[in-house]
């Protein structure tokens, strides 16, 4: 079962290494990881997608709390969230297929952000499913390169992952 968790940490050197090393040595698999600063310059936020049964998730959360720099761990399992990934896809696009590709891109509300003689770079933002779906449709034209970010998540409504919330 895939879980998306948010981890608030002190914004200090080495915190990412501590967190990643904990996952590695306890045998927890990270599907994706995104880290950034937040509205509070002293706090960074990680969104981590992990695969495992509930008992493993509970253990991950407890082990994370043992790190001195971890302020808060939030499992988004049972709540409505906004979750986004971003992908850049470089696809073969010669004149014969440009129109088709542009139509597909438009249906997905994605953007063409680079145009060259024989290629497009397409930027798509959305849930993992949406990114997967667009990538699958573009497959037949020939995907030359693809890069996607880790998932980022915020809870819907007024709920926040504040320090003491």
């Amino acid at each position: 079962m895939k879980h998306t968790i948010s981890v608030l940490v002190n914004n200090r050197p080495g915190v990412l290494a501590r967190t990643a090393s904990l996952f590695a040595r306890r045998g927890f698999n990270i599907d994706s990881l995104a880290v950034s600063t937040t509205q509070d310059p002293d706090v960074s936020r990680m969104t981590i997608v992990v695969d495992g049964p509930d008992a493993v998730l509970e253990q991950i959360s407890k082990q994370l709390y043992k790190l001195m720099d971890v302020i808060k761990v939030l499992d988004h399992q049972d709540e409505a969230v906004v979750n986004r990934e971003l992908a850049l896809i470089k696809v073969d696009a010669d004149a014969s297929v440009r129109g088709e590709i542009m139509q597909t891109v438009s249906i997905f509300r994605a953007n063409i952000v680079d145009v060259a003689d024989r290629t497009f770079i397409i930027e798509v933002t959305g849930s993992a499913d949406k990114v997967d779906a667009l990538a699958a449709l573009l497959q037949k034209y020939g995907i030359k390169e693809m890069m996607r970010t880790g998932r980022i998540v915020l809870s819907r409504g007024p709920r926040t992952a504040q320090r003491n919330g």
């Binding site: 080495g14 290494a17 501590r18 090393s21 904990l22 040595r25 043992k66 790190l67 001195m68």
Partner: peptide, 14 residues
């Protein structure tokens, strides 16, 4: 040494 001892200390400092 802070990198090396990360998994075997409760916490460490440089």
């Amino acid at each position: 040494i802070t990198g090396i001892t990360m998994p075997i200390t409760k916490h460490n400092y440089l």
